[in-house]
């Protein structure tokens, strides 16, 4: 799937936050959204990922207009995964149960995911019984459980030390069929991203391709 945003404008109340943003997110790439605090990274990510309706403009997933989708829950389940800064797990469920939370019936890759993410021996522990890095890896597994086309991550390494942060970015590289869109301050992303979108004061300042 390719994601296209056309002439996105966004206001919080009367405050104009995003200005005329048009861009394309290519499949199977890691896209980083970087920029100063307050530049609109999170807002843009939320709009692209269907969580936030833009004030103006359109979002297309291939040729599907996002605002036309009737069953957004099912669409998210199939096509979109989320990773949040605070790697929110449900704490009365085990890591494995958390990962399986939104799994479609046909998703049978849970065991394999757990293995790839290196949390096999922790699968039956509860969220508050593992480290932050391990929690975040479980959250990433949850986002990937239905092999979605897109995984959106807002500051996924914001709560992690350098070693764990690098581990997360490396993981993203392992899932070659998924497009990762990462909004972050973390400069380390530059070594891992295929495409970098630079935000400044609500404008897209520059889009650059790292490799081809």
């Amino acid at each position: 799937m390719t994601l296209r945003a056309n002439n996105i404008e966004h206001f919080y109340g009367s405050e104009h936050i995003l200005h005329n943003i048009s861009l394309e997110i290519m499949p199977k790439k890691i896209t980083a959204i970087i920029g100063e605090s307050g530049s609109g990274k999170t807002t843009l990510l939320a709009i692209l990922s269907s969580l936030l309706k833009p004030t103006r403009g359109t979002i297309y997933y291939d040729d599907i207009l996002l605002s036309n989708i009737k069953n957004i829950d099912l669409f998210r389940k199939k096509n979109i995964g989320f990773v949040f800064q605070f790697h929110y797990l449900i704490d009365y469920l085990t890591l494995k149960e958390n990962i399986a939370l939104g799994a479609l019936k046909e998703s049978d890759n849970i065991e394999e995911l757990i293995k790839t993410l290196g949390i096999s021996n922790l699968a039956n522990r509860y969220g508050n019984e593992v480290s932050g890095g391990e929690r975040q890896r479980a959250a990433i597994a949850r986002a990937l459980v239905n092999s979605p086309s897109f995984v959106f991550a807002d500051e996924p390494t914001g709560n992690l030390d350098t070693k764990n942060a690098i581990g997360v970015f490396e993981l993203f590289r392992n899932f070659k069929d998924t497009s990762f869109i990462v909004a972050t301050h973390d400069k380390k992303i530059i070594d891992y991203a295929d495409i970098i979108i630079e935000m400044e004061d609500g404008y897209v300042k520059n889009i650059s391709s790292q490799r081809t």
Partner: peptide, 14 residues
């Protein structure tokens, strides 16, 4: 709330 937010984000229907 966080729990229900997570459920919504993984596409569990209302």
């Amino acid at each position: 709330k966080v729990e229900f937010g997570i459920m919504r984000s993984v596409g569990l229907p209302s």
